[in-house]
Amino acid sequence: MTADVHNLCLGDIHVGQSLPPLEHEVTATTVVLGAMASRDWRPMHHDRDFAINRNGARDIFLNTPNQAAWLERLITDWSGPKGRLGAMRFQMKTSVYPGDRMRLTGKVTEISPTEWGYGWVAMELAIHVGSRQATSCQASVAIAVDQHNNPWLSPIRLEKVSM
């Protein structure tokens, strides 16, 4: 394995711990790249005229799978590649538009050890634009108990996931 890959273990994490925040200046390119990568061809994600005049939106806006991808990145930038997402739920309250500077944040809310060498780490995440919370999210990621365990090679029991 590449030597500089860092992975968190369960002992490195505590309830109330904050994830390192992630900031990004959203442009039309951000929106269109995300939509095209997720094969989302709907016009409100690339056609400004459609977004404004048909949808009543301010501009084109980030699509759902792209928001999920940003939130996934926030989590695994912190956990390292051994972190295995179990579940994610998010509510889009307002849209994220070109010109917005989005700030993604997260905080650990619960740690639930399992018998399979990992624990489920539940967290509250959010995407803010200025003081406005555009998206709120709850997620759960499997984190290895120690460096000898690996959630990707363990049975995943989603019924144990809490968010």
Binding site: M1, T2, V5, H24, T30, L33, G34, M36, A37, S38, N66, A69, W70, E72, R73, T76, D77, P81, K82, N150, W152
Partner: peptide, 22 residues
């Protein structure tokens, strides 16, 4: 494309040695 759109450098998706190992 998906990783590039969100600048996700998780080596699971970029580094074959890491993905093989993990």
């Amino acid at each position: 494309n998906t990783c590039a759109a969100v600048q996700n450098g998780n080596p699971l998706f970029w580094d074959e040695a890491v993905s093989n190992s993990i």
